[in-house]
């Protein structure tokens, strides 16, 4: 327990939508632990609840969203019960966030360097001169070329890759304990993505911070994460360390995701596909939420909701018949 920087317990988050009385449950009882100094991946397809999970913990849900229950313990304090003022302090000083499109998080009418130094002054209590000097150092550190000149550039004058470097610089400026990165490289070209991922790793090694990496890209997960949570339809369906996950994934959904990637499949051979589409949040299957799309689903899967269970060595899987295991009613390889 002591070794986790953030622990989310049984988080339930709902959303209201226009003209409906019932609320849609977007996150349904999620448990996630982020060990100190490690990078944890939260992976899943659009609408699975991965971003909502982190926004809930950070108190950043949009107006129509509401945390129904659960806790998010950060250094012994439940973020979900903190007054706004306290939470804002933690968000600025100890937890930083970066998002997919840095343009939406940067102020378009303020030079980027000034934005970094204002963050330092606001949260770090530095004077103007020190903050400016420190900001240029930070921009250099995150690989912004000609940092002194770039300091006075407006966001639109920078490329997407440079903007994301500025965002990372800003996020790192206050030496946070936890960095939440929500699809930080999704909008970038692969060569820039590789640079950004390596930068995040290097900075992490220097500072010892923890990272929650939210992504749909299994390549990014394999490249940078130590452990992984796979989400499907608002729930964690599998959790394992990254090597175990890619070697012995146990949930048919995870397996399907990995198998459907065009990696080494020769031309002409069909790609594996997961049939159907993600269920509607307001019409979830009664049993396993993945059952309608699962090749292995049997009667029990339709009727009884599987629990997230340890299938060995802390590898968690929410399935009545995990792939490739002997226990838990496994039925061979599907």
């Amino acid at each position: 327990m002591q070794d986790n920087i953030l622990e989310i317990h049984n988080l339930v988050t709902s959303f209201a939508s226009d003209g409906r009385k019932d609320r849609a449950i977007a996150v349904n009882g999620v448990d996630i632990a982020i060990p100190k100094g490690s990078t944890v991946g939260l992976v899943g397809e659009s609408g699975c609840g991965k971003s909502v999970t982190s926004l809930s913990a950070m108190g950043l849900l949009p107006d129509n969203g509401r945390v129904e229950s659960g806790e998010a313990i950060f250094c012994g304090r439940d973020l979900l019960k903190l007054p706004d003022r306290e939470l804002r302090k933690i968000r600025g000083n100890r937890i930083s966030m970066i998002f997919q499109e840095p343009m939406t998080s940067l102020n378009p009418v303020i030079p980027v360097g000034k934005q970094v130094s204002e963050a330092l002054r606001l949260h770090g209590g530095m004077d103007k001169e020190t903050a400016k000097r420190k900001s240029i150092e930070i921009l250099e550190r995150v690989g912004v070329p000609e940092a002194r000149r770039r300091y006075d550039n407006y966001p639109h004058q920078l490329s997407g890759g440079l903007r994301q470097r500025v965002m990372i610089g800003m996020a790192m400026a206050l030496k946070p304990d936890l960095l939440i990165a929500d699809e930080p490289t999704t909008a970038l070209d692969v060569s820039i993505e590789a640079q950004i991922l390596r930068l995040m790793r290097t900075l992490q090694r220097e500072s010892g911070m923890s990272i929650l990496m939210i992504t749909h890209n299994l390549g990014v997960v394999a490249e940078i994460c130590d452990e992984v949570y796979v989400m499907y339809a608002g729930e964690v369906v599998e959790h394992a360390d990254v090597y175990a996950l890619f070697r012995d994934c146990a949930h048919p959904y995870t397996r399907g995701l990995i198998a459907s990637l065009p990696r080494m499949t020769p031309k002409g051979q069909r790609l594996y596909t997961i049939r159907g589409t993600v269920p509607n949040l307001r019409a979830m299957p009664a049993g396993c939420r993945f059952a309608p799309r699962c090749e292995r689903a049997c009667k029990r899967c339709w009727e009884e909701k599987p629990l997230l269970q340890d299938i060995g060595n802390g590898h968690l899987c929410r399935c009545h018949a995990p792939v490739g295991t002997n226990g838990n009613g496994g039925e061979g390889n599907g």
């Binding site: 692969v190 993505e193 590789a194 390549g219 997960v221 090597y243 890619f246």
Partner: peptide, 15 residues
């Protein structure tokens, strides 16, 4: 370009 693509296999990591 080919080397930049993050491959979905942690065994191929090469820092």
């Amino acid at each position: 370009l080919l080397d930049s693509v993050p491959q979905p296999d942690p065994l191929l990591r090469d820092e």
